[in-house]
Design a binder for these strands. Sequence first.
DNA 1: CATGAATGAGTATTCATTCAT
DNA 2: GATGAATGAATACTCATTCAT
Lengths: 212, 212, 212, 212
Amino acid sequence: MPKVFPGYREEAKNRIIKESVKFFSKKGYHKTKMADIATSLGVSKGAIYQYFGSKEELFLEVIRDYIKYTQKELISFLDVHPPQDLVTDEFFDIMFNLGQSQSIESLTIVDRLFPPLDFNLAISELIKSNPSMKKEMTKYYADSIKLMAEYFEDYKNKGVIKHEVDTWSLSIGITSLQDGLMAAIQMSLEISEIRKAWKEVTKIMLSSVLVD
Amino acid sequence: MPKVFPGYREEAKNRIIKESVKFFSKKGYHKTKMADIATSLGVSKGAIYQYFGSKEELFLEVIRDYIKYTQKELISFLDVHPPQDLVTDEFFDIMFNLGQSQSIESLTIVDRLFPPLDFNLAISELIKSNPSMKKEMTKYYADSIKLMAEYFEDYKNKGVIKHEVDTWSLSIGITSLQDGLMAAIQMSLEISEIRKAWKEVTKIMLSSVLVD
Amino acid sequence: MPKVFPGYREEAKNRIIKESVKFFSKKGYHKTKMADIATSLGVSKGAIYQYFGSKEELFLEVIRDYIKYTQKELISFLDVHPPQDLVTDEFFDIMFNLGQSQSIESLTIVDRLFPPLDFNLAISELIKSNPSMKKEMTKYYADSIKLMAEYFEDYKNKGVIKHEVDTWSLSIGITSLQDGLMAAIQMSLEISEIRKAWKEVTKIMLSSVLVD
Amino acid sequence: MPKVFPGYREEAKNRIIKESVKFFSKKGYHKTKMADIATSLGVSKGAIYQYFGSKEELFLEVIRDYIKYTQKELISFLDVHPPQDLVTDEFFDIMFNLGQSQSIESLTIVDRLFPPLDFNLAISELIKSNPSMKKEMTKYYADSIKLMAEYFEDYKNKGVIKHEVDTWSLSIGITSLQDGLMAAIQMSLEISEIRKAWKEVTKIMLSSVLVD
DNA sequence: CATGAATGAGTATTCATTCAT
DNA sequence: GATGAATGAATACTCATTCAT
């Protein structure tokens, strides 16, 4: 096919990414075969290589896309919600890419636009041997911590959070709690239990952190 | 190496496990080659197969050993320490297998008996395709949650923890926080920052959870 | 590029050939990709296939063109020069497609119209599996030998070359010397050394071959 | 199989090299498949990779072996023969690895221990993209030139070769003549013709170069 | 028990070529 | 004529596992 239409390439890349994320999150990096993805897309392996130089590069793009999406959602949420709302279902769903909270339990995770791909888990191995990927992920991670720390700092200045609170540590704590709960999903803990734990723990934390 | 005497087999297995854990935690499961382990031990690949039926089985044993060791340390700690002590350096070091807290920053992680092998990360992929392994890990995970929940429950009965606290969720929260901070190590966050975050967050939580 | 006018096709083919020879001589047959040539020409791969049925055919045309060009130059030279002139710079430059002898050392070989493509080297592998190509090349090679042999024979009749000289062997010798020196270029021998060796050796040979 | 016997590894490598040279010289580098070699040896592909890290490395070893063998033969010859003997059948056979001169015409080239693998042809392409290989080959080439130049220089001092002869150029000339004739074999020229040309041309050259 | 040579199934990747637009 | 997306056959290479000695 010829010059199809402007932006076709971008769209094609996107289609591949969206398909790949399912496999990577469901089967992991190594168990996912390029052939699987290709077949599932109804194209040849070669077609994928037209858009991504290697399996690793494809995976990297998947991760980037996932990060971008998640971070964007996080930012929009924080933009209009005070810390008190961290304990809501809405925030929990954003964190775990669960979408509309009411129906989530009935969905197969991998069928969703972005399954809660625990990218920390998935990239752990690649990171160990790919310095540039490690650097990129590390930067993203640090950015996320900073983003939330600034959010807390902001509310400290507004007098919502107690002035003696170490917002940097708080940010690391919240982020780690989130990552750890993501791992709990892998460990087959019920999502309802996880959701409950999240709400309980953040409620406890907020009660100590918020003014009054 | 002596050849035959009672317990030789056990000892040999142990040597292999101790060597393997270094590779698995440093390079991950797939990047670790049986040949590497064998060479590093100064034996042949065949020798390892005399003790472990497969790479996967070896890995499983490594994980089991790791879990056993970590859980034992956790139990001993909880056995004699009240919840207030969760905020101490000693507990942090046990959790992350960091050993003597005073000198830890100067040690290369992988040189330690048990590097903070984030088994959650390491097994994530294998778990996805190995049902029996998944079951075993899931059980261990649930046991850990339960262990700590009972500990909290116990202190609730002693009147140390407020009676309205959901100890099950608290346990999930503490465990997830720990797992998430483990991931933060992979993300190159400074151990000193992680330690500080841990202490800060647990302090906050405890202040809400403990009576008075 | 104009699209349609008489001779356009020929011109287009020519442009492709001229671009291809650079790649084939610089990178060899296998390392040269159709995509490289297309990109370098600023056209699509498909465009090349409009003029050449396959990569091999293109290569064949490149070789033919190269041969034709070189042989033509050789013939014009021999047409007006006696054997004594074989030792001149001019002849050396023709042989190695070096063009203007005075400035050659400062030119990048591949930037020239015809880089000294050692076609013996370049086609060696293809020849082994392509009978028709082998036949064609073999014919060309034999023709070249014959051409020069007749030239020597002619001068033998003119009394310039001693009558006992085996002109056929002499022709093979001169041709082989040329091919071998071409290989020496590949082996990074300095062109100045090669030029000197050529002049020295032909001088020696001529002194024995020429009458007086 | 276990520690078979001392030196087994060396012997195995050698077997592989001897088998590979047949394929590389008969079919060229790219047309030769690892599977072909393995099958021909009656082993698995994996077995070859136990001894050679890659196809390219195997090829490199083949070339090295060839060079070592050829250069050794050349040295022994030059060691005991004066320049006059360059015109003999014996030298021709050594140069082209033709072995016993009497029976050579009846042998299939590739069945011989060392077919006249024209390594200049075979490595030409690889050399273009493998700098370390290029360096090694270039060094070998330069060494060969030097070796012969010193030989001529030696005989110049002995008063056998005229003192005005440029022995360096002479060495380049002889070597190139040899390489060019090797190419002539590829071009299907009769070995008898090539042999005749060699003898004729060297005779001519020597008559000018030798004292008297 | 130990060795390490051999196996072979498994896969990412390349690239000349085609053809719908 | 030109484009470039898609194809798919072809192959080098890996490495856990086996087993003869």
